[in-house]
Structures are given as C-alpha cells and as structure tokens.
C-alpha cells in the first residue's frame, strides 16, 4: 500500500497529524543521519551516533504507520544481513591494515585535517559502523516490538 493512502486511512497507525508530520520529516532524519556519519571524523558524531539516527528514521516509520511500511522497506532478513555486512566491512578494514604492516593500520593517505576527504580509514570505519549499528538497532526494534508482540498474542 502506498504511504499516502496509509496516511489517509484512519484505521492504520497513529493519528493523521502524526502520520503526515512523520512522512515529511523522515527523509530529513535520514539525511541528517548520513551527514553525521560522513562528517563523523571532523565534527562531533560518528558511526555510532549516525547509525542510531539512521535507525531512528525507520523506527519512526514503525511507530507512526505500523510495522508493515517499515518492513516493506527493509525486512528483518535484510536488516540482519546489513548488520552482518557492516560488521564484516569493519573487520575487513582491520585486516587490510595488515598490508601496511599492522592490524587496523590507517593505510590511506591522511589528507589535510578538517577537510571532508581526510583521516584515512576513519570515515570508512564510520560508514561500516553506521551500517552495522543502524541495521542492528532496527533489527532489535523489529524483534522486540513486532515479532515479540506476535508471539505473545499467539500464546494467549
């Protein structure tokens, strides 16, 4: 179902005010999360904080529209897959450092401090962590809210 139709349908999710505001704001949250991740090495923030914000944009979808909209965008399978891939990317970055002689060596040119393209592997690590944290937090929220609730309802 289209997200606009869900907004109009009073039987789904929260009130129409919440749904409209969430629909407008969710992309900005996503972009803000990306900004925090990509600028993590030169401003406050970083992979974890940015990843949490990325996950929150999906969590907002669940809260406002119910589980189905968010699950249609990213299912539990892909959430756990991205979670694993993010962790794998981080470990791989660590292993690539061995080429330069040390585990987790910052083997890329460090660049000028303060510029976006600088700090070697730190931005790459931030991106890997953000994918890992964002997907994991979203998966945890899915597991605790949607899947958890289904199984208790079946029991009762």
């Amino acid at each position: 179902m289209d997200i606009k139709e869900i907004t109009r349908d009073k039987s789904l999710g929260m009130t129409i005010i919440v749904k409209t505001i969430s629909r407008l704001i969710v992309s900005f949250i996503l972009v803000f999360g990306l900004y925090i991740v990509l600028y993590g090495h030169i401003t406050p923030g970083g992979g974890f904080a940015g990843g949490v914000i990325l996950a929150i944009s999906y969590v907002l979808l669940i809260l406002a529209f119910g589980g189905k909209v968010a699950v249609a965008k990213m299912s539990g399978f892909w959430a756990s897959m991205w979670d694993n891939l993010g962790a794998l990317a981080f470990v791989v970055i660590g292993f690539l450092g061995l080429i330069g002689g040390y585990f987790f060596l910052n083997f890329i040119n460090h660049g000028t401090p303060g510029k976006l393209i600088s700090a070697g592997i730190i931005p790459l690590c931030n991106i890997a962590i953000a994918v890992k944290v964002g997907a994991a937090l979203y998966a945890v929220f899915l597991a605790l809210s949607i899947y958890g609730r289904i199984s208790t309802e079946e029991d009762e």
Binding site: F77, S80, M81, N84, L85, A87, L88, V91, V92, G94, F95, L98, G101, Y102, F103, F104
Partner: peptide, 25 residues
C-alpha cells in the same frame, strides 16, 4: 611484531559474521 596475535582475535570475530552470512545460503 608477531602478526598472529591480532589474528587470534580477528579471525574468530570475522568468521562469526561470515558464518551468519554464508549460512543464509
């Protein structure tokens, strides 16, 4: 420098993740 030392931690850590990914196949 003894490069096996980080591998003692790195290999199980990486394989823990790879195991999950490959098990989907």
């Amino acid at each position: 420098m003894n490069h096996i030392l980080p591998l003692m931690v790195g290999i199980p850590l990486g394989m823990a993740v790879i195991t999950l990914i490959l098990s989907k196949i």
